Simulated scan of single mutants.
Amino acid sequence: MSTCATVSRQLDEPVSATAPTATTWLLLEQSGPWGAEALTSSHLDPALGRALERAAQGTGVRVALIRRPGRHADFHAPAARHVYAAHTVPGGAWLHGALTTAPERLLDLDFHALGGGDHRTFDTALGGRPHTGDPLALVCTNGRRDRCCALLGRPLAAELAASGVRGVWESTHLGGHRFSPTLLILPYGYAYGRAEARTVKEALRGVREGRVVLDGCRGRTAWQRPAQAAELAVREATGEYRADALTVTRADALGADGDTPRWEVTVSHTDGHQWHVVVAQGAALPPRPESCGAAVLGGPSRMDVVSVRELALS
């Protein structure tokens, strides 16, 4: 039986506008195995995992577990765990890191402030400071969530680490198993699908140069899916690759055209130029497995760019 990633690739399903959404990512190092719902089914205290889920709900913060590529036995667990927070909104993106021996201290964070881009709560609660090393490359390897993430993600993470790429971590669920291997690059928060080592290295080089690599890009996690589609469409149309040159300033629902929801999204450039982008939600056909564990075939939604119109400068 074909995996969901194999079927998606055979059908040439677009990866654009399929990124998970979070204005801020909060990452906690946790060695050992991960279950399908990793915060409550790993060797992290499940009570702490549930409390973190509740604290993050509705704040724009997404919590994920990370571990170094390689063997996952708990005897590799460090005494002090890495913790990262990354805010992904253009013009205010940052990445801070800390070490902690008490992961329960994450509950001291003001999650609403963190989701809004205020790093002071992270620095105060955990002794955090700006991350000065290489950008982070998170490869989803959560095979209990979907086997494609283990079959395709773990070899990619191992290859990157073995070739000397720094900042590589395995991570829990990043969404879109059928696009495995899936990847998240921080601090900008661009997600990638069907990632290969060469494209990951190019994406990381791009971050160091302040630009976005569009090959395999699923979108910026700061935005909801219609805005992800609009931003990527403007980049394709204009050749603007600087990461913080574009931002989404409005996203208005236009109502449905028949059964098709539509949005008008305003994408703004730092130089004052603006574009109106119309995005329509459709279904990916023919039906396909949205994950390897799905009992029935589905028609996952897709975001189709209907038009891109540059506005006259006022």
Rank of each mutant, 00 (worst) to 15 (best):
E264R: 15
C148R: 11
G210T: 04
L99P: 09
W263S: 09
A79G: 13
P289Y: 04
H76K: 10
T121S: 11
A283H: 15
L65W: 04
L26N: 04
P300N: 04
A283V: 12
L126Q: 11
T266D: 00
R144K: 15
D271F: 06
L313Q: 15
G127I: 06
E209Y: 02
F179T: 03
V63F: 04
C4W: 04
A113L: 12
V277Y: 05
R288L: 14
H177I: 09
A251D: 13
L99C: 11
L39R: 00
A157T: 07
W263Q: 10
A256M: 10
L186R: 08
A284V: 15
R198S: 15
G32W: 08
R218I: 08
G193D: 00
A85M: 09
A191V: 09
A86L: 03
G293E: 14
E159I: 08
E290A: 13
T221R: 01
S8T: 10
A93H: 08
L28N: 07
Y241N: 03
A312H: 14
G97Y: 03
R262M: 13
A77Y: 01
S307H: 06
A161I: 00
H96Y: 12
Q274R: 15
R242W: 08
L151R: 14
Q10M: 09
A295R: 14
G92K: 11
A55M: 07
V296S: 10
A284N: 13
T260W: 04
R105K: 12
Q57H: 15
P46E: 02
E29Q: 14
A256L: 00
V63N: 05
G219K: 10
G133L: 04
C149E: 09
G35N: 10
R178G: 07
L106V: 13
A237M: 08
R54H: 12
L214W: 03
D12L: 12
S180V: 01
D110Y: 03
R242H: 08
G258N: 03
M1C: 05
V213L: 14
P286Q: 10
A251S: 15
V200A: 07
R220G: 07
Q274I: 06
T21H: 12
M303Y: 14
P78R: 01
R68M: 04
G206R: 07
K201P: 02
V308I: 13
K201Q: 15
R262A: 11
G299W: 02
L138Q: 06
L11W: 06
R220M: 03
P300A: 05
R302G: 06
G153A: 05
I185F: 01
D74I: 12
A161E: 08
T101K: 13
V139A: 09
R9T: 13
P20R: 06
E53W: 00
A229C: 04
G164Y: 05
A283Y: 14
S301H: 12
